[in-house]
Design a protein around this nucleic acid. Structure first.
Lengths: 217, 217, 217, 217
DNA sequence: GATGAATGAGCCTTCATTCAT
DNA sequence: GATGAATGAAGGCTCATTCAT
């Protein structure tokens, strides 16, 4: 299930007995995400991570020194992945703020990011007070950059479209709708589809900026 | 730690040695909320709950047969409290859907509900919701009732105000904005105030139903 | 299931709220026997004894001071009951050693003594090393008296019948066959009946003293 | 308590830090037998087993997944040891039923089997047999095989020697005398010697089959 | 007498971490 | 690099015992 590590140039089917340092770490981080998703934060153990990765118990700590280090690196990995995803989407959107916002929304629900396992892993980190300083360390800066980008886009749309709202609150409502839809997908008993989540986010954009967006059917 | 001598006149600000069953249970549930808030789900232990309540850990298990039972009852308590709060607000709002929505929003940020400890406790449960049936058991039904109420209000506002949106998505955007603001208050490094959270929710209402609500300054 | 306490002169159906000291103690001892039988020594708890007796937790310790005291008294009760049973049987047997032996054997399998619950309780005490000093205290003397009686009977039968065996070993074989049959009834997966156990003991007597006893069919 | 420095030349009479899986398991099972003997079933704790083995309690559960598993394996070990002992004795006895019976009796009191610790451990398991399926699972089949062997021998002796008894009861009397003697060695205040126990069993054989056995002095 | 709340010692078990191989 | 035995701290839970009512 986990994708092959980025720089693995070995047998594609089975992890070789010795892998490059980075490849092993990626493999273990991926196993950690799977485990967080399957068992939650509280019941994620190193033994389970190792079993999921198909590795021995001791090897995980050989690469990550401590459980806290592993979780921290896993969170950083998720944050980096998320960050690269929306930045890449932004790059392809050109200079038009409407197209930029559209690209951002779509990126947040893209199949690379909006995986059940990744959603669940994010949820696990959010819920755990213990991980809050850890979260700020790994994600604070990146979250701030995302917010700033979103607020800039909203401000530019306001300027251009003559909307009168507070761009900070407009950006916040957009972000909360997107994040909240993620949470819904995790916590509801019979959650709606990713497509419906995306449609909800687009509806939110259409309500905020009616001259630039249209609510989907 | 030994109990005071039998003829000691009880200091009033110290819990008596024996309390009624329900009073003790409430006390312990409250201590559980505090502990969840302070240490998160994963590091919430019976010993810590007992210490917070100023009781022996044995007594916690005397009143709640297991840790799982304690957490389940705590979540039910939170859910019940939340439910009663918005229903009471709704009752005082009369039949006008705009006033009803206003009351619902206000209720969700009222001082009785929107406590740091309670927010954090909810967060802790959300984070584990994926891997444990606990959350759905205690909250699934109540969450559905809240959603249904919100959707009905949105539909009535649509009918009355001539708004064209999908009431399900409008209700969802409102709910996610409210819930998300709660999450922000927990996870941000320097979160905005509860007043700003409330203003954001009201802004959301104003954007959805501009003829019935005005965005706060 | 437990027989009414010996000196209870109250309502026969339900134990009254206050009973005489001895009646309460008997009731609790009987509940202890039932519990030992149902759950074994290791899992016999005061709570379970109290529940079996239909009494509150604390009352058991009010009457017996400690768990050890309760178990000790229970064992003494069993020993006394056993002792009185075979002595009474012996009294009715007259002076003939063959009839005495016959009476002893029959007494050990009589319905008053050879109850499933009582067998299981004896087994529980035998198996528990912890209870060995306790066992000696309660039963050592009585066991010795039983042995002495049995040896005397065997010696008299030898004298009278011209058997050549060692009376100590003959008595021992008889006793072990009886005791062992009890153990069989407890530990075998599909044990034989009490009648077969009795027949086995009589067969043993017939082999030891062929001129005085005949093996049953 | 910290392990000796890495370059310390290992004292030979101290168990090495790492042993083969099977060797460790055997060591722990042996410690369990000692502990059962010393403290009985109810007070046998993993901590005590570990202390007896000179190991950490965590290691016991590393090799046996639970206390129940440890006890079950210990009982199986005892049963297997016992079974192999009498079967080996039987193999060396040739085809003569008298010599076979003699070998069986002797085997049951051989120094390898009739150890104080082993007797006490058996006792502990018997005492709990009632309330746990543990015993039947581990020993039911092996006990049945022993019984069948003994009954066959008795039947062959009857055929050959013209004895008229019921071979099932004769085998039972023999077995109960042997087992009962074991119990005596455990429960009596001043028990007789193993030699006297063996003599008693032989006396029993001599009484059952007087033409093939002679009672010892 | 009787009840049941309350305590705390001690149990089994989990699990992060260390370390010899 | 990699494995897995070994350790020990800490957690949930049971239960004998105490004690206020």
């Amino acid at each position: 299930m986990p994708p092959p590590p980025p720089d693995a140039s070995d047998t594609p089917n089975r992890p070789p007995r010795t892998m490059s340092r980075e490849a092993r770490r990626s493999q273990i981080v991926e196993a950690t995400i799977q485990t967080l998703a399957a068992r939650g934060f509280a019941r994620t153990t190193l033994t389970e991570v190792a079993r999921t990765a198909g590795l021995s118990h001791g090897l995980v700590l050989f690469h990550f020194d401590s459980k806290e280090g592993l979780l921290s690196d896993t969170l950083s990995h998720l944050a980096e992945e998320y960050s690269q995803n929306w930045k890449a989407a932004l790059d392809t959107a050109g200079d038009d703020p409407a197209q930029q916002l559209s690209a951002l929304i779509e990126a947040d629900f893209s199949p690379a990011i909006c995986t059940p396992a990744r959603l669940a892993a994010w949820c696990a980190f959010w819920g755990e007070a213990q991980s809050r300083p850890l979260y700020q360390e790994s994600c604070g800066e990146k979250d701030a950059a995302y917010n700033a980008t979103l607020e800039t886009i909203c401000a530019r749309l306001n300027d251009r479209g003559g909307y009168g709202g507070n761009p900070v609150r407009m950006a916040r409502i957009l972000r909360l709708t997107i994040e909240g839809a993620w949470l819904d997908l995790m916590t509801m008993e019979a959650p709606y589809s990713v497509e419906e989540a995306l449609a909800t986010a687009r509806t939110c954009a259409a309500i905020l900026f009616p001259r630039d967006f249209t609510a989907p059917a």
